[in-house]
Amino acid sequence: MIITDTHTHLYSEQFDEDRNEMVQRAIDAGVSRFFVPAIDSTYINAMLELEKAFPNNTFLMMGLHPTHVKENVTEELAFVKKWLDKRTFYAVGEIGIDLYWDNTFLKEQQFAFKTQIEWAKEKNLPIIIHCRDAFNEIFEVLEAVSDDKLFGIFHCFTGNLEQAKKAISYNMKLGIGGVVTFKNGKIDQFLSEIPLEHIVLETDAPYLAPTPFRGKRNESSYITKVVDKLADIYKISSEEIAKITTQNSKNIFGI
């Protein structure tokens, strides 16, 4: 069984004590492909070290995370562009809009989101969308830039059925992780109405650990709990869930 974790922050400081062991646990559990999003310029060295340590399993993205969009947005975007032009990345992400903590930099977030979408289109790369308390704002941008070059993943999807269908209409897969196992997560109540061809798996490790690890540090091996939950929702085997979602990820990332 080959499982793909389409969104995991393996370079996080939370893994500094046991990173190699944690990655090996995931590989032993069948997780052989890790797609790693960027946050801002301060993480590039850690990302490159991770890729060096696990060259056959790690696939890096490049982008500016919306919660790290501040006064220096132009500077940070220039950094993203420099690296996108410098070497291969597998997606532009994670990018988007986050109004959960603060809406001070909404205009800058919108600007950064649109700018990075354009770069993704130029390079024929998928975008990885971060959306928190910002579905309307995200959809407004996607509507403005929608064309046949727009595609990607709506990371950590936590919306309702209508929002899920709208995201898919913009050629986005839904990134499903630990939230689907939460009693109050709600997405498990309608997910069976979304064809499995629109779903990819993720952990967002070290965040959002699935039940029974909720509240603890998440890691990529825990994605098996997400696989099992989807097998229950879709009434097919865990092996079939892994196979279909990994193929979906290959269709997105081109590998």
Rank of each mutant, 00 (worst) to 15 (best):
G254A: 15
R132Y: 03
N184H: 05
E143N: 06
G215E: 01
E162P: 10
E17R: 03
S221G: 07
I2A: 02
E219D: 14
S221W: 11
R25L: 12
A29Q: 12
I129Q: 08
A91G: 14
I27P: 00
E118F: 12
A164M: 04
V200F: 10
M62A: 02
M172V: 00
S146K: 13
F35W: 11
V92Q: 08
F34G: 01
Q189R: 13
T4H: 08
I187L: 14
M1F: 07
K243G: 02
I176L: 02
K229R: 14
A134D: 07
W101P: 12
Y234S: 04
V31W: 15
C156S: 15
E197K: 15
S237Y: 07
F111W: 00
L84G: 04
I223L: 13
K166V: 02
Q24R: 07
Q163W: 14
V200G: 04
T115P: 00
F54N: 07
E239H: 07
K173N: 01
P55A: 03
T67Y: 15
F154H: 03
F35H: 05
D232V: 01
P66Q: 03
T246M: 14
S237I: 09
P126G: 13
N72G: 03
F105T: 10
A167W: 10
R217G: 04
I39F: 09
D40K: 07
E75D: 10
E75I: 05
L208H: 00
H65K: 15
V36E: 06
R87I: 02
L201F: 09
I138Y: 04
V73Q: 05
T104F: 12
Y170C: 05
Q116D: 04
